[in-house]
Design a protein around this nucleic acid. Structure first.
Length: 735
RNA sequence: GGGCGCAUAGCUCAGCUGGUUAGAGCACUUCGUUUACACCGAAGGGGUCCAGGGUUCGAAUCCUUGUGCGCCCACCA
């Protein structure tokens, strides 16, 4: 009887693709095909990568996390399901493609290509990118169910988006309103509050009076907006200004017809800051707009347009750029001795995350989700639902409480909800779910429709379909249930929703987690997931972020090519803790590659000295004959218990370290050396090896599966049972 | 302004609800070509666990103050 021979070193490149193919063909990535097991389900939705490009190391980390968790649960006997998918990433993708077209020399892609033409370009780009991404996910060894592959912009997901929109529209939680929104001049679109990136900048703060006889001085870094001022707000208890509250003044900033300024009182004003008075510009400030809503007596005067230039209401400055208008106005203030102070300050300015330009606050008609309105029949607002899910549990059910790991994000999330304003969901870009609403000019009404060119249901007149598209997070928010059959396939939904686990980076906590909770609690009256694992971001060795502009990025595929997927996965999983950033560099991968090879050589040694037939037949924990045997087996039992416990708590790094230490120091360096000089250790060697392969499989699936296969096992390691510590252990300790 | 996190060996980091000589990887020193592995083995050096104060029989671990670094939110008055 011959022994099994292994090559001297593990060659990842030669085996990984084949193994993945075998796994995929086995059908076991689909829980419906798993051998009958009754341990319950374990469902995870993959955070869908944006189809804006290729996968980076952050994605590799996420795939490692999800797949390790999934494989562990599958081996524990759960019906494990990981749903793969991609995200059309509305603004991000359109901005990317438009940028590329501009680089190729097209000045205005929207104008030159038109809606359909540009959409075709974007679609082409997205499809290419999608294909690449999906093959990369396979390369990572991710055991996801490809039969359930989803895309936020595909047919079933679009149906879910429309259904969801209609439900909210019918409940009047979605409304069309005239509000101050964030406007990107470059992108010619709105963006939500969360899409703003604040950047520090040096600016000048001007303190001045509107006119010589005006009693209160105000300060501003943007005097040009003062042409849109309609009021001055002071704190109601401010003794200096109390006597003026309610008075109206007429001013002339030398640019246009006279402006009327009303002195109003508002709690939002800090009497200690600046002059203790604010010039109120409802059209170009969020806070000022709120004052406008509260005070019926003041009006709203937009002076800045969508093109970023001054409007007609700015009088003689009409058509001027903002900076130009500012300079002229300041000059005028100086000339008229109205400027009191000019100081340099540092403040933050909101810029568009995707287009990069400074975002203007402009008032316009947009679609919003009302987060503060009572939901019909629920006696709660969307905000309430978002809070409840992480505090008392959805509908006050303890078992429907979302656990956030690490828990410091719990309060951050709640604090974010407190500050949450109505969510602007309409975007003036073309790549995305078209808003399913049309307007009838005759009836002056809008109505829900999915048709391109609908007729008004009331008067049968031709109606205009809304041109805008939905914020991409509207579809992402529905991800956990749109991927599981909602609204059509109730069976699938009942079987798998809510999901068990979700992992994501803290940078999209608000974007995504919050919206999933909002959408799911509202639409399904349930939570989207039970546990959220927040991971940090990966940084270069010097602590800087990986970025294209720095050129310090590492391509996961190149790392895999050089070291193997297992090495990459292990290096990503070791040394990470939830919520904290981790550094990633080549030496780490090298160390992991060395370990993978170590495991390979442990197997090579054992298989080289024991007959194949014997190897195959040993399944049970053998008897310990010597002190060393006993020590090793007891230690192994402890390792099984610890690894299981740490994995149950999602302490991936810790579990890996425990295993690493045992495998290398105890088993390889110590016990294997004993086995070289003492006989009768075959059973223990094989049993320990097999147990270790199972314990390691979630982290390094390829090499373990390959060795498992060499052992002559018939079943795949993929669906082997997770090791447990049985009775034998208790008997042993009595000896 | 409000909130959060981090500070442990040269470097990158583990150390959960406090308990024997503080750990790992990489790097370093010396030795070793013993047929599993040089992607290796053996031995070893290296830490006042940021600082001060406190709780405790006992603290890297809990409390408090401070210092340094990082992040989030608010803010364009």
């Amino acid at each position: 009887m011959a022994n099994i021979e292994l090559s001297k070193a593990y060659e990842a490149k030669e085996v990984e693709d084949n193994i993945y193919k075998k796994w995929e063909e086995s059908g076991y990535f689909n829980p419906d095909n798993l051998p009958s097991q009754s341990e319950g389900k374990f469902v995870v939705c993959m955070p869908p990568p944006n189809v804006t490009g290729v996968l980076h190391l952050g994605h590799a980390l996420e795939n490692s996390l999800m797949d390790t968790e999934l494989r562990y649960q599958r081996m524990k006997g759960k019906r494990a399901l990981l749903i793969p998918g991609t995200d059309h990433a509305a603004v991000a993708t359109q901005a990317r493609v438009e940028g590329n077209l501009r680089k190729e020399g097209m000045l205005n892609p929207r104008q030159e290509l038109g809606r359909e033409g540009l959409l075709n370009k974007i679609r082409e780009y997205a499809e290419n990118s999608k294909t690449t991404i999906l093959s990369q996910i396979r390369k990572m060894g991710t055991s996801c169910d490809w039969s359930r592959l989803a895309y936020t912009f595909d047919e079933p997901r679009s149906r879910a988006v429309n259904t969801l929109f209609k439900k909210m529209y019918d409940d009047a939680l979605i409304y069309r309103g005239y509000r101050v929104v964030n406007w990107s001049v470059k992108g010619q679109s709105t963006c939500s509050d969360d899409e703003l990136v604040y950047q520090p900048q040096k600016s000048k703060l001007y303190t001045f009076k509107y006119s010589a006889d005006f009693p209160i001085a105000i300060a501003s870094t943007r005097p040009e907006t003062k042409l849109g001022d309609v009021a001055v707000a002071v704190h109601p208890n401010d003794e200096r200004y109390q006597k003026y509250i309610g008075q109206k003044f007429t001013i002339d900033l030398g640019a246009k017809e006279k402006q009327t300024i009303t002195i109003i009182a508002d709690e939002a004003v800090d009497p200690k800051y600046g002059t203790g008075a604010i010039g109120v510009t409802p059209a170009h400030s969020q806070i000022d707009f709120e004052m406008y809503q509260k005070n019926k007596e003041i009006s709203i005067v937009p002076v800045i347009g969508k093109d970023g230039k001054m409007l007609e209401a700015a009088g003689k400055y009409q058509g001027f750029g903002l900076l130009e208008a500012r300079e002229k106005l300041v000059e005028w203030l100086k000339e008229n001795n109205l400027l009191i102070k000019e100081e340099d300050i540092e403040n933050n300015i909101g810029t568009s995350d995707r287009f990069g330009d400074v975002v203007e606050a402009l008032p316009m008609e947009q679609w919003f989700v009302d987060v503060n309105k009572i939901i019909p029949g629920r006696n709660k607002t969307l905000k309430d639902l978002m809070r409840e899910a992480v505090t008392s549990g959805h509908n006050n059910q303890e078992e429907k409480k979302i656990i956030i790991n690490p828990d410091q994000f719990h309060n951050i999330y709640l604090h974010w909800i407190d500050n949450l304003r109505d969510w602007c969901i309409s975007r003036q870009i073309w790549w995305g779910h078209r808003i399913p609403v049309a307007y009838c000019d005759k009836c002056q009404k809008n109505f829900y429709t999915e048709e391109e060119s609908p007729l008004c249901p009331k008067c049968q007149a031709q109606a205009r379909r809304d041109d805008d598209t939905l914020d991409t997070w509207f579809s992402s928010g529905a991800w956990t249930f749109s991927t599981l059959g909602w609204p059509d396939n109730k069976e699938e939904l009942n079987k798998f929703h809510p999901t068990e686990w979700m992992q994501m980076g803290y940078e999209i906590l608000f974007f995504w987690m919050a919206r999933m909770i909002l959408m799911t609690t509202y639409a399904l009256d349930d939570i989207p997931f039970k546990n959220v694992y927040i991971h940090g971001i990966l940084r270069a060795k010097d602590g800087r972020k990986f970025s294209k502009s720095l050129g310090n990025g590492l391509d996961p595929l190149e790392v895999i090519n050089q070291y193997g997927t297992d090495a990459l996965r292990l290096s990503l999983m070791k040394g990470i803790t939830p919520g904290n950033d981790a550094r990633f560099y080549e030496e780490k991968v090298e160390a992991s590659r060395n370990f993978v090879n170590k495991l390979w050589n442990i197997s090579r040694f054992i298989l080289g000295k024991i007959e194949a037939e014997k190897v195959k037949n040993i399944k049970e924990r053998p008897e310990a004959k010597t002190l060393a045997d006993k020590w090793l087996l007891n230690k192994l039992d402890g390792i099984i218990l610890k690894t299981t416990k740490e994995l149950d708590n999602h302490n991936f790094s810790l579990a890996a370290e425990i295993l690493y230490e045992f495998t290398w120091s105890d088993f390889a360096d110590w016990y294997l050396e004993i086995a070289k000089i003492e006989n009768g250790k075959d059973e223990i060697l094989i049993y320990t090896l097999k147990t270790l392969l199972k314990l390691w499989h979630p982290y390094i699936p390829f090499v373990t599966e390959e060795i498992w296969n060499k052992l002559g096992e018939e079943k795949m390691l993929l669906i082997e049972k997770w090791p447990t510590v049985g009775k034998i252990h208790e008997n042993d300790s009595n000896k």
